[in-house]
Amino acid sequence: MAKRNTKVDVFTVDGVGEHKKKFLVELLRQMTLIRRFEEKAAQMYGLRKIGGFCHLYNGQEAVAVGAISALDLKHDYVLTAYRDHGHALAVGMEPNAIMAELYGKITGCSRGKGGSMHMFDAEKHFLGGNGIVGAQIPMATGTAFAQMYWKKVMGEKQTGVTLCFFGDGAIHQGAFHESLNLAAVWKLPVIYIVENNQFGMGTAVHRVSSVEDFEIKATGFDMPGMTIDGMNVIAVHDGIRKAREQAQADETPILIDIKTYRYKGHSMSDPAKYRTREQLEQFQQQDPILVLKATMIDAKMIDDDEYKKIDDDVKKVVNESVEFAENSDEPPVETMYEDIYA
């Protein structure tokens, strides 16, 4: 049966758009840092330095980097799920603190208590790192509620927006549907971002969803919707910047479906037999890092040597984070009784 009302336009940007070299080099550096960090995390997981569920971000770098680079983290907030290393790096958390957290060391951002799924940095307005599918969606709606409240009740001039990342699997939780209605009714400045990497664990989107383009769900809540090419970091950045302006100017939540792909298994223990090599390769050909690099070379903003220097620099940063984690102390066992009540 033909699907109804499923035609959406995918927002993308050709070439470098209006951006200057310095800014794009920074996006390229951040994405490369995430890629190298994840590769190292996988390696250290293999050596059993890291345990448990470890969900890697390879392939999705443009989403966190593009979106978060459009924010002002003095005022804006970011929440995401357990696949959070990329977001943590993109908000500017120290690679050392993230790697140490993966190692379960006391110098980790969550003092060795959270691990891979629970990166937090309150100062940088990064509120996790949530392990329960969809659980960050109502919370993000709540931080946006506070942003509205600070403005309307407490007279604050500049209060920002909340960016809420979640997966294509999370969109079927009641939490999503309840939250979007609340946000629409109370006009909350929250941007809901579906990181649509085509799978929730081993389940392809079409097997569990009546629609494949999530943008159309916005209609039911009478809020703006948008679809963005998530393999193009410039498109993600420009799209989220526009959305951020709209959320503030029109006092509205926005739902954005960002099409992306995860290269690795769901977590380290998943061999990902449910998809074809061809599909993976098709996305790897639009690799967000390679795409940006090629675009910048075309625009004569960068050459291979310059890129190599960026790559060497981030590799150094990543290696240092491993060294830092290795040399950090285990948390004293008594700290298990800490961080429970305020």
């Binding site: 379960g104 969550s110 060795g112 208590k113 629970h118 948390p331 066992v333 298990m336 009784y337 429970i340």
Partner: peptide, 16 residues
């Protein structure tokens, strides 16, 4: 179990 949420660190989680 100790009356605490479970920490990630393995030594601590065994102690819990």
């Amino acid at each position: 179990s100790e009356d605490v949420p479970m920490p990630y660190n393995h030594r601590m989680e065994l102690a819990v």
